[in-house]
Lab assay of single mutants.
Amino acid sequence: PQECLLLEPGLNEIMANSLDYNERLWAWESWRSEVGKQLRPLYEEYVVLKNEMARANHYEDYGDYWRGDYEVNGVDGYDYSRGQLIEDVEHTFEEIKPLYEHLHAYVRAKLMNAYPSYISPIGCLPAHLLGDMWGRFWTNLYSLTVPFGQKPNIDVTDAMVDQAWDAQRIFKEAEKFFVSVGLPNMTQGFWENSMLTDPGNVQKAVCHPTAWDLGKGDFRILMCTKVTMDDFLTAHHEMGHIQYDMAYAAQPFLLRNGANEGFHEAVGEIMSLSAATPKHLKSIGLLSPDFQEDNETEINFLLKQALTIVGTLPFTYMLEKWRWMVFKGEIPKDQWMKKWWEMKREIVGVVEPVPHDETYCDPASLFHVSNDYSFIRYYTRTLYQFQFQEALCQAAKHEGPLHKCDISNSTEAGQKLFNMLRLGKSEPWTLALENVVGAKNMNVRPLLNYFEPLFTWLKDQNKNSFVGWSTDWSPYADQSIKVRISLKSALGDKAYEWNDNEMYLFRSSVAY
């Protein structure tokens, strides 16, 4: 590609939709070469300064400071330590791993069909083939991996386009969902002041979706909304933040926050679980009234959910574990990228498509890292959202599997949720969690119950496949010279610098 592309739109479109291996590689590498390399010296300084700040406030390091958001002291029976968070994340991840490994094996087999000769049947997945710029969410792999393609499509993007949905309609439908469970409408100022579409040439905007509580009843969302099912669900997520903000607005200023950061992320995700169900999509006209649910549509639905929800958990866990180790000084600065990709291979089963030396800073190419967000919130929120969903479905008197529950129109479920939201940070999160779900610790069981039918199906699908991955295989081993030459021509001086062995191999191949 010759034109100058922004991340959004532009590069993200390539990473969402392109099936051209080399075009995807160009976009993936260009973003890291342009952005990651510029941020490397800044990120090194950032780590030093943030650690100084944390230690001045009596924390061991900046990662310890972040984990302090979960700490509860002096509340008998509800205490929770920063170290306990690490333990809980690690042991819940071990419980999730078998499901993830089977999802990984299934996706690898489907990617082998889409990119023959580029995928190893026992290796890691190349990082640039996973549906977005970071491989964070695998949602866009659904069209390549759908188990029963002859069934009606449960990705309702086409239906939204056919019905001329726009950003306003998407957010109005999200608002209807919250109102149906007894939560309030958005304010008039929300509709007047939010930026729900890309302003285009009028001004440059950071398009990463964010929710804003500017105080004095001024709530806004910034999002360059596209007419897709993914953005339909994202709208519910962002509006969930606003509902939380509005619910605790009466609290004293210092207590106007989520019980912990994971709670804030979980609220909209609960609504997304219901909004994505075929039952709900039928009720708002995005699935045909004669759409029939059966075992095959159930597996299609659960796989689509797993690509988004299960596929991202190792990504989140590994990223934050790397940062915690960096802040603690356990990874020397001259080994940041080496350790990043070692951990990516070992924990996530994902491999870099071309080698990256220590001039890169791949983590900082992600919005949340370069903008100083702690990231473990996206792991804890996933466990909380299924715990909350299970409890709210019980309040809504849902009968049947958890993945079929739609809590819309249940004011009982809405009241149970609101009673927790309005507390803000005035009560320990362990107590707030217990008030809703009857337990005071994160628990992976509801998530595993939700995906149980899919897990059973995946194990059957993978019975003749290798489950797990070898960390030795690299996608650039066989194609390295071709890849390096093409990237050198595209990126010039910003391309990865060849070492002596690679230059010798190149000259030998040319001479041959």
Rank of each mutant, 00 (worst) to 15 (best):
D230A: 10
E192I: 06
P209Y: 04
M246L: 05
N153H: 07
T187N: 08
Q188C: 06
E261V: 06
H264Y: 12
S272K: 08
E269P: 11
W212P: 00
D213H: 04
Q251T: 07
R256H: 12
Q251Y: 00
H208T: 12
G215V: 04
P209S: 09
T308H: 13
H368A: 12
D372C: 03
F253M: 06
V206P: 01
Q305D: 10
A249E: 05
M229K: 11
K304L: 09
R377V: 09
L214K: 00
T139I: 13
E192K: 11
A250P: 12
I309E: 04
Q251I: 03
I309A: 13
E265I: 06
R136K: 12
Q188M: 05
R136A: 08
H208P: 00
T234D: 07
H241C: 14
T139E: 09
N153D: 12
N153Q: 05
I309P: 01
H237P: 02
N140E: 09
S272W: 09
K304C: 10
G215M: 14
I309Y: 11
E261I: 06
E261F: 09
D230C: 13
D245I: 15
Q188A: 08
D218W: 00
H264N: 12
I309H: 10
H237M: 12
M246T: 14
W212E: 02
R136W: 07
Q251C: 12
G189F: 00
L214G: 04
F375A: 11
Y378T: 12
G217I: 00
F301H: 09
E269N: 09
Y378M: 13
T308A: 10
A249F: 01
D230K: 09
P252I: 00
I309N: 08
K216N: 02
L233P: 05
T187H: 05
H264F: 03
F219A: 01
R381W: 07
G215Q: 09
E192Q: 10
L214I: 04
R381H: 10
G217P: 01
T308I: 07
A250M: 09
S272M: 09
N257W: 13
L214N: 03
S374V: 11
Q188V: 11
M229S: 07
R377M: 08
S272D: 08
D218G: 00
P252M: 04
M229D: 13
P209I: 03
H241Q: 13
F301Y: 12
D218H: 00
A250L: 07
E265R: 06
T234C: 11
H264C: 06
R136T: 07
L233E: 08
D245P: 03
D213K: 09
F367S: 09
P209R: 02
Q251D: 00
D213F: 13
L233R: 07
W212V: 05
Y373P: 05
D245F: 13
F375H: 05
G189R: 01
D230V: 12
R381Y: 04
L233M: 10
P252Y: 03
F375D: 10
R377N: 09
N257H: 13
Q305R: 09
H264I: 09
F367D: 08
M229Y: 11
G189Y: 01
N153W: 09
M246F: 05
T308D: 10
D230T: 12
A249L: 15
D213Y: 05
S272H: 07
A250V: 12
K216W: 00
F301A: 08
L214T: 00
K216E: 03
N193Q: 15
H264L: 05
N257E: 13
D230P: 08
T139D: 13
H237W: 08
